[in-house]
Computed example of a mutant assay.
Amino acid sequence: MDLLVLQTDFGRSDGAVSAMYGVANQVSQTLNIYDLTHGIPQFNIWEASYRLLQTVNYWPKETVFVSVVDPGVGSSRRSIVAKTSTGHYIVSPDNGTLTHLYLHLGIEELRIIDENVNRLPGSSESYTFHGRDVYAYTGARLAAGIINYSEVGPSVDVESLVKLKVDKPELTDTEISGTIDVSDIRYGNLWTNVPRLDFQNLIGYGQDVEVEITHNEQVYYQATLTFDHFFAEVKPGAALIYVNSLDNIALAINQGNFLKAYGLGTGINWKISFKKVN
């Protein structure tokens, strides 16, 4: 498909992303190169994993993604290319970046990058920019059809993949709880891991819900909110519960920023519970 999509925590303030573009264009000037994001918080593997889940399945099959959030660059961590069950390819360090794809889309095959073949010529003494020298180079070669997937390197057991700890939602007769996985960055909406269908087994649209948010067992937020279809069902500045674009339950303030308003955060240690109000 000649589609290459890049994700990093590099930002845009220097030439790192441009260097990756340059390497890919040296491999093939017919590639179509796009950005997923370069705004992943530094070293935040969890968020890199989630943003891939948010995006990958909306691209055509055989699209190649390069994801570089790599605090262990140069160490013994593996460099891999995964083939998802949906037919996409992900080039990444094996550090947990593929956790959410493994859980929600499925990983069909996993290969270690053979750097004797798939590494930018002349870069063997560069130990801290594998995003350019190994991942962009390998991803571009795969996307351009210069190598096929079997030529990436040796196949390894999918179950050997490094995975981050992920908690599953818990459901009782009166309550459902989960984690606040990430935020909708521009707007500060809180995206949870609670699926809509599980939530709606307990709570319907228009109903009041008791919400509690904790971090390391300390309560940061408690309120009663309604479960609404869209933001404008409440007044500007009012909070609501809604279904996000991944069909999970989320919290927002209409024309506001929930994350900043209450000094909250995201990640597996941020817990949320929803209790039906009788």
Rank of each mutant, 00 (worst) to 15 (best):
F199I: 07
L251H: 02
V68A: 02
L225P: 02
Y58A: 14
D167N: 13
R51V: 07
V182Q: 06
L6M: 01
L52C: 05
V5C: 07
E175K: 15
G106D: 15
S273T: 06
R196P: 00
V194L: 04
V152W: 08
V162F: 14
V81N: 03
N32F: 06
T214H: 11
I113Q: 04
K168C: 09
V182E: 08
L246I: 04
L240V: 07
Y127I: 12
D70S: 00
S273I: 06
T214R: 15
L164H: 01
N189T: 10
F258M: 09
V17Q: 03
D173V: 13
P195C: 08
N44D: 10
I241N: 05
V156M: 06
A16I: 05
F199S: 04
E47H: 00
K235Y: 13
E210K: 15
H130M: 11
A261Y: 06
D198F: 09
V277E: 11
L164M: 05
E109T: 11
Q54F: 09
Y127V: 11
H100L: 13
F43A: 10
F65Q: 00
G15A: 06
R78W: 10
N25P: 02
K260L: 14
F199G: 02
S49Q: 04
H229Y: 10
K276L: 15
G74F: 05
V194R: 00
G122L: 12
I185R: 02
P60V: 02
R51C: 09
L225M: 06
Q29Y: 07
G11I: 01
A19V: 09
E151V: 08
Q26P: 04
A16K: 03
T192D: 06
L161S: 12
L142G: 12
G15F: 01
Q200W: 05
I80K: 03
K61Q: 15
K83V: 09
Y21D: 05
T128P: 08
L197E: 15
I268G: 03
S79I: 06
G204R: 11
G204A: 14
Y262G: 13
V134Q: 08
G267W: 05
G72Y: 06
D114Q: 08
R77I: 05
R12H: 04
E175S: 13
L4W: 01
N32L: 08
S183T: 15
I253H: 02
N118E: 11
A223G: 07
L164T: 00
Y220K: 15
I33T: 00
R186P: 13
G237N: 01
T97P: 07
V219E: 12
P71S: 05
D35I: 00
A261G: 04
L171A: 09
I33K: 03
N189F: 14
F231W: 01
Q7V: 00
L101G: 07
Y34Q: 04
L171D: 07
L202P: 02
H229P: 04
H100E: 15
L120S: 13
E47P: 00
V162L: 12
W191R: 10
D70L: 05
T63R: 02
D35G: 00
K235E: 15
F129Q: 13
E47N: 04
F65G: 02
T214W: 10
A261C: 03
Y50H: 09
N257K: 08
E217N: 15
G74S: 07
D133M: 12
I112D: 10
I213K: 12
K168N: 14
G153N: 06
P195M: 06
Q255R: 01
D14R: 00
H104R: 14
L259Q: 11
A140R: 05
G131V: 09
L53R: 07
T99R: 02
